[in-house]
């Protein structure tokens, strides 16, 4: 009797286990399929915006670094040209335009062998390529920010709009940020110092790079005004897509 009961129990157990295994398999299969579907339909809008603005940074860094070495070498050959163009963009263009005439009318340049001159001129094509690539990325950013963040972009331009997405993490997170946080976005070190040590709270973060903030004396006030409008723009961008960009711009101008 005891024996039979035991046997039945084991059979039930084995059956139960097989059933459970089947059920687990089903869960794995169905969840995997659904997840693959979800991945397939994911659009990676934020990810690509963030990638593009970060890529632009690396291009800008490379351009500056390579350009600095070019400028340094150019001093030995044609210091007048190196001196005349403070801005890297215009220096690169000037050197390209002079080409092999470089150094010919220089009073202060040294005696440079032609192989060395070629070495210096050889630095120009990669720089021009970097410039072109920067422009390509900027165009891409313009296109995507005005499509996915039309109001924010109208207000502060494509690069700054993308920068805010990068700093906040996503369009959604940006849309949920209070304007006081937007105002200091990009100044996290100063914010922490303020919270921890009671130092002065920062008045602006990345918004510092906006022309309106840059040129005013009262940076705190203008940054706050901009942040207020950005907070609205980002919410409208995220939730409705309605276009009120021009109106927001006008409001900023009026309140300045």
């Amino acid at each position: 009797m005891k024996h039979i009961v035991l046997h039945e129990q084991t059979t039930a157990k084995v059956l139960h286990k097989a059933k459970a295994q089947q059920y687990h398999k089903k869960l794995v299969k169905e969840n995997t399929q659904l997840t693959i579907q979800d991945l397939k339909t994911h659009e990676y809008v934020d990810e690509l915006l963030i990638n593009a603005i970060a890529y632009l940074d690396t291009l800008q860094d490379s351009f500056e670094q390579q350009g600095t070495k070019m400028r340094e070498a150019l001093r030995y050959l044609d210091p007048e040209t190196a001196h005349a163009h403070r801005d890297m963009d215009s220096l690169v263009t000037a050197v390209r335009n002079k080409g092999s005439a470089l150094g010919k009318s220089s009073a202060l340049g040294g005696t440079i062998a032609s192989t060395s001159k070629h070495y210096i001129l050889g630095m120009i094509p990669p720089l021009l390529q970097l410039k072109e690539e920067k422009n390509r990325v900027k165009t891409y950013l313009e296109h995507n920010t005005s499509r996915y963040l039309p109001n924010t972009t109208a207000l502060i331009g494509p690069e700054l709009a993308a920068r805010l997405v990068q700093l906040s993490g996503s369009r959604k997170k940006l849309a949920f940020l209070p304007s006081s946080s937007i105002q200091v976005l990009g100044a996290s070190k100063a914010v922490f110092r303020h919270l921890r040590e009671g130092s002065k709270s920062p008045k602006h973060g990345i918004l510092f790079t906006h022309p309106l903030v840059k040129k005013t004396k009262d940076k705190g006030r203008v940054a706050k005004l901009l942040a207020d409008k950005i907070a609205i723009a980002a919410k409208v961008d995220y939730f409705s897509g309605e276009y009120i960009g021009e109106q927001l711009k006008k409001e900023v101008e009026e309140q300045l």
Partner: peptide
């Protein structure tokens, strides 16, 4: 998960 058939992934 391709290697480990006990993982049920949920995005």
């Amino acid at each position: 998960a391709q290697e480990l058939p006990t993982i049920a992934p949920l995005l």
